[in-house]
Amino acid sequence: MNKYLIFGSGLSACKDLEGLRAVCRSAMSHGILQFDTAPSYKTEEVLSKAVSLCGQELGITREEYFIQTKIDPIQMYNGNVAEYFKGKLSQMNLDYVDSLLIHWPLQKYFMQTWESLQWLKENMYVKQIGICNLRVRHLKELYGKGIIPDILQIERHPLNIFEEERAFCERHNILLQDYSPLCKMHPRISENVEVRNIAKKYNCNVGQVILRWHIDTGAFPVFTSTKPARVEQYSHVEDFSLTQNEIEIISSLNCNHKLYLESLVCPGF
């Protein structure tokens, strides 16, 4: 099993059952058993069904695969998150999810939402709880209040390595998940001569090298593809490890580049 890679069903993923089923089958056939979704992606129910069907085909039980979803701002605003989520489980035909994250931690509704997540965990509707899109200053503030998420999910890639956040997670045993891990194959990554040479050395492509960089820096990359062959290709990142020098070469691409600006979506936190 590839215990690090997470297949994401985000906004650029397949939305129909057969398309998503094809990429999920490719993922699960090659040891990728962790899946990420959210209400705003419009894939929660179809992803759960696709993964269940593929699991039945491949002899993979529910206990062996991992499904993660989120609480979006609209659910935070509406309140009564625990009741909402129990209804969502029914719609996804699940007894539990493996992790539930606060997608955009709006400050006004954060504490009541976090308390709901804690209740859901205590009552075994979820196994782990976490937060997305926080910076280290927020993590420190929450830590001072006794709030330590099981998981932090942030946009992280070689053009924005978020070293302070990574180090904080390592110190406090928080699982770090990196979304947009390839930074949409930005030319600064895909055309970099040193990165291409590393790929040539390991007889792989640049995308595989960057996913391996995430793993070798202690993170779980959340990647998305609509192509089963690409999913299979990325599943082979456990076939090699980068040297410390190669990790440093890739990390040196850091230029604080962001694809998504949290302040536009989540003002005030």
Rank of each mutant, 00 (worst) to 15 (best):
residue 194 E to G: 03
residue 177 Q to I: 09
residue 138 H to S: 09
residue 269 F to T: 13
residue 104 W to K: 13
residue 188 R to I: 10
residue 265 V to P: 00
residue 159 L to N: 13
residue 94 L to E: 06
residue 269 F to K: 10
residue 231 V to G: 04
residue 189 I to R: 00
residue 262 E to F: 07
residue 135 R to C: 00
residue 137 R to H: 15
residue 237 V to F: 12
residue 255 C to H: 09
residue 39 P to S: 05
residue 40 S to P: 00
residue 14 C to E: 15
residue 12 S to I: 12
residue 158 P to N: 08
residue 123 N to H: 13
residue 120 L to Q: 00
residue 22 A to Y: 00
residue 105 P to I: 05
residue 223 F to V: 13
residue 110 F to D: 11
residue 119 W to S: 03
residue 47 L to S: 08
residue 96 Y to Q: 04
residue 114 W to P: 01
residue 13 A to W: 03
residue 63 E to V: 05
residue 27 A to G: 01
residue 80 N to L: 07
residue 173 N to I: 03
residue 130 G to L: 06
residue 32 I to R: 00
residue 262 E to M: 08
residue 147 I to C: 10
residue 174 I to W: 10
residue 115 E to C: 01
residue 26 S to A: 15
residue 169 C to S: 06
residue 157 H to M: 06
residue 22 A to E: 11
residue 5 L to D: 07
residue 54 C to Q: 00
residue 209 V to I: 15
residue 213 W to F: 09
residue 237 V to Q: 07
residue 110 F to Y: 11
residue 250 I to N: 03
residue 195 V to E: 03
residue 60 I to Y: 13
residue 158 P to Y: 02
residue 236 H to Y: 12
residue 3 K to W: 05
residue 151 I to E: 09
residue 212 R to T: 05
residue 40 S to D: 11
residue 254 N to H: 11
residue 241 S to A: 14
residue 171 R to F: 13
residue 87 G to N: 10
residue 28 M to Y: 06
residue 212 R to N: 04
residue 11 L to C: 04
residue 6 I to D: 00
residue 247 I to V: 13
residue 119 W to H: 04
residue 81 V to C: 04
residue 244 Q to R: 11
residue 138 H to D: 14
residue 5 L to H: 09
residue 224 T to W: 02
residue 262 E to G: 00
residue 105 P to G: 07
residue 77 Y to A: 08
residue 267 P to R: 10
residue 29 S to M: 04
residue 7 F to W: 12
residue 64 E to G: 02
residue 45 E to M: 13
residue 110 F to G: 10
residue 28 M to N: 02
residue 40 S to N: 12
residue 48 S to N: 10
residue 262 E to Y: 11
residue 167 A to P: 00
residue 200 K to I: 05
residue 224 T to C: 10
residue 11 L to T: 15
residue 207 G to W: 05
residue 60 I to M: 14
residue 236 H to Q: 14
residue 184 K to P: 04
residue 149 P to D: 03
residue 130 G to D: 07
residue 173 N to W: 11
residue 101 L to I: 15
residue 22 A to H: 01
residue 199 A to V: 10
residue 152 L to E: 09
residue 203 N to K: 14
residue 229 A to N: 11
residue 39 P to Q: 05
residue 116 S to G: 03
residue 137 R to F: 10
residue 28 M to W: 07
residue 181 P to G: 07
residue 14 C to N: 15
residue 217 T to L: 09
residue 133 N to A: 08
residue 4 Y to S: 09
residue 11 L to W: 12
residue 176 L to M: 13
residue 70 K to I: 05
residue 203 N to I: 07
